[in-house]
């Protein structure tokens, strides 16, 4: 005995009793052919995902039946095709899992299991998220140490650029500034240019020799040349240095905040 299931859609806009009559008609046809009807499931009126024969909704039915041979299916489907009330039909042979599934569904086990599974999955997901968060936080801590030492070596490179400020030619520091200023991106840019510019500035020290104090102040500040270039006029380097020192410390604060907030988040 093979078990089959046939799902079909009946047009919804039929006079009273017509739909039931149609279903009974097919049930009778099956029993007459010697099939054993296992179950008739009335799924009911449903919205169609797309219109069929100008109908936007349909009444769904499923008949489960057992038969020795599959010959009945040809007859049944021929009847469906001839019937104008039927919008769609689909016959499927059930394997042992399908039979089990349908039995469970009738007993209400499937819905129960579905809810349980959903709850289980949600729980598992939450657990894994928590795990990932912990891992991320651990990574953040280790990576936090890295960015701090970076700016230091760069500051030593920049000192000559500041030295150049003493000179009337403002263009040179501007060039140098470009290459030096964006500390994060420095790695991308060809750093080969820097020494070339710096080489020019190295000649200067004769003038600079007077102001020995300047580099000491500047050494702290990473971004001095940009502001100096903007000013173009004779600027008191000490003031800008002080301002920038503030800025730099601010930047550091921001970084700290970011990492902290990230830690909290992730």
């Amino acid at each position: 005995m093979r078990q089959y299931e046939t799902t079909f859609i009946v047009a919804p806009a039929l006079p009273d009793g017509e739909i039931k009559k149609a279903v009974k008609n097919y049930k009778d046809l099956l029993t007459k052919e010697g099939c054993e009807i296992v179950h008739v499931d009335e799924i009911g009126l449903k919205q169609l995902a797309y219109s069929i024969k100008k109908h936007n909704s349909g009444v769904y039915f499923t008949i489960e039946y057992k038969t020795e041979t599959g010959e009945i299916i040809d007859k049944l489907e021929l009847a469906f095709r001839r019937d104008e009330r039927i919008l769609r039909f689909l016959s499927v042979k059930l394997d042992k899992y399908g039979i089990k599934y349908n039995e469970d569904k009738r007993a209400g086990i499937i819905d129960e299991r579905k809810n349980k599974l959903a709850a289980e999955r949600a729980k598992e997901r939450a657990e894994q998220d928590a795990k990932n968060k912990a891992k991320k936080a651990a990574n953040k801590k280790s990576s936090k140490k890295k960015p701090a030492p970076k700016p230091k070596p760069e500051s030593t490179v920049e000192v000559p650029a500041d030295v150049a400020v003493a000179e009337p030619t403002v263009e040179v520091p501007a060039d140098v500034a470009k290459t030096v200023e964006v500390p994060a991106d420095v790695a991308k840019e060809p750093t080969v240019e820097v020494p070339a510019d710096v080489a020019k500035t190295v000649e200067v020290p004769a003038d600079v020799a007077k102001t020995v104090e300047v580099p000491a102040d500047v050494a702290k500040t990473v971004e001095v040349p940009a502001d100096v270039a903007k000013a173009e006029e004779a600027v008191e380097t000490v003031d800008t240095a002080a301002d920038i020192a503030e800025e730099v410390s601010l930047d550091m604060d921001i970084l700290g905040d970011l990492t902290d907030s990230d830690n909290n988040k992730g």
């Binding site: 894994q128 998220d129 990932n132 968060k133 991320k136 990574n139 501007a174 500034a177 470009k178 200023e181 964006v182 994060a184 991106d185 971004e223 940009a226 270039a229 903007k230 930047d251 921001i254 970011l258 990230d262 988040k265 992730g266």
Partner: peptide, 26 residues
């Protein structure tokens, strides 16, 4: 130009932090 570049560099760095999907590493 240098000033602008610096600003742009800084903002983009922060924006990336906030625009990126926080679940990307998980």
């Amino acid at each position: 130009a240098v000033q602008r570049q610096r600003r742009a560099g800084r903002t983009s760095r922060e924006d990336i932090k906030f625009l990126s999907n926080p679940n990307i590493g998980n």
